[in-house]
Design a protein around this nucleic acid. Sequence first.
DNA 1: AGCATTCATGAACGTGCGTTCATAACGGAG
DNA 2: CTCCGTTATGAACGCACGTTCATGAATGCT
Lengths: 208, 208
Amino acid sequence: MSPRKAAALRDDQSLRDHLIATCEHLMAERGAAGFTVRDIARNAQVADGVLYNHFTDKEELLAVALHAHVRNTERALGERPGTPGQDTLEANLRAYLDYALRLHMAIMPAFAGLVSQPKVLARFAELSNPMADGQGLQANLAAYLRAEQRLGRLRSTANPDAAATILIGACHELILPRLYVQGAQPSPNDIPPGYIDGIVTTLINGIV
Amino acid sequence: MSPRKAAALRDDQSLRDHLIATCEHLMAERGAAGFTVRDIARNAQVADGVLYNHFTDKEELLAVALHAHVRNTERALGERPGTPGQDTLEANLRAYLDYALRLHMAIMPAFAGLVSQPKVLARFAELSNPMADGQGLQANLAAYLRAEQRLGRLRSTANPDAAATILIGACHELILPRLYVQGAQPSPNDIPPGYIDGIVTTLINGIV
DNA sequence: AGCATTCATGAACGTGCGTTCATAACGGAG
DNA sequence: CTCCGTTATGAACGCACGTTCATGAATGCT
């Protein structure tokens, strides 16, 4: 089959997008540093050098793919939960923890291996923070809690920032150990429900 | 200067121990995957091949050095705080958070880069969990909290495991973002005191 | 002093990776 | 049909890294 034909058959997707999607998939599977240029080519079923017809170098493709992966994951999850004054605080926090778990479980594996590579890390500057605080997830939660506090649904002396740190931190704590097992494709279902309940309950008792 | 003389001048330290110490230092600075065999040799001021006179390969040296680093850090920190029934719960939790922060701030940078390397990770199996839960730090804290609960100093419905997860999780949450900045040598002093207070207070309110 | 053993040395080797480039296949314009 | 710009191709290049090995210096034993 001719390469042009092959590209055309790829659902009218331009080769550039096809490369990005392939790279996204590999990143989610093995981490941003877990595959080679040839791995990308083989998985995309194209020649070794294609990458350089559409990107300046591997890092640029990685950056674009990482961006796309984060954006796609967020889009797939829908909008963030937690509308002030709506539902119970517990329901909102539970939904938020679930959202954070799903987002980070999908995103964190992709970031794996970046920390030890200063050059790559520098290039991912605006993406490296999201791995830590999830695209402002913590700030978002803190803002929600402040709004609830203004509505009188939180103890006035409670610290929204600390509470947000606690929830996101617990989220990371539940995910991190699961990243170190062989397959490393964690799912929210793997987490014992008792942990979720205990965390939400403790947090609720701590702030209302 | 003769190599033997040089080794002798190194404070009677055997070359093997000298290599371990050098490797430890590099790991704490750049992460376990952030330096080469030649980097070790240059920093240790020895020839490129020395490593293989004392270890089977690079990975063995890394494993030994990582073990030593964790052990040395724990020894430097003294015993873990939190004796049930002693001091106030708040003082104990504050001390525990401080201990966890110091330990993980010293240890986590060294683990950087391991996640993306399955082969290395497999060889570090028993060491990869410590990075996530800090040598059983979480289990240790949970046991302490259970003891306090038996003494009636905790609400009987409180969940010690969840509380431990929260504290350790918050600890990670405070550290992780700091691992992504250039120099990456975080210190407990860098953390705004308000965060510590807010976390401890929220947790205390949640469980007593 | 003579010999055997140990071990540091650093040049050299093989491998894997990111990247380049001459080639050719393709589609469109005239 | 022919020419031309575009772009996929994959062999080849250069480099960095882990590892090996022939060499020689130091040490301990007899």
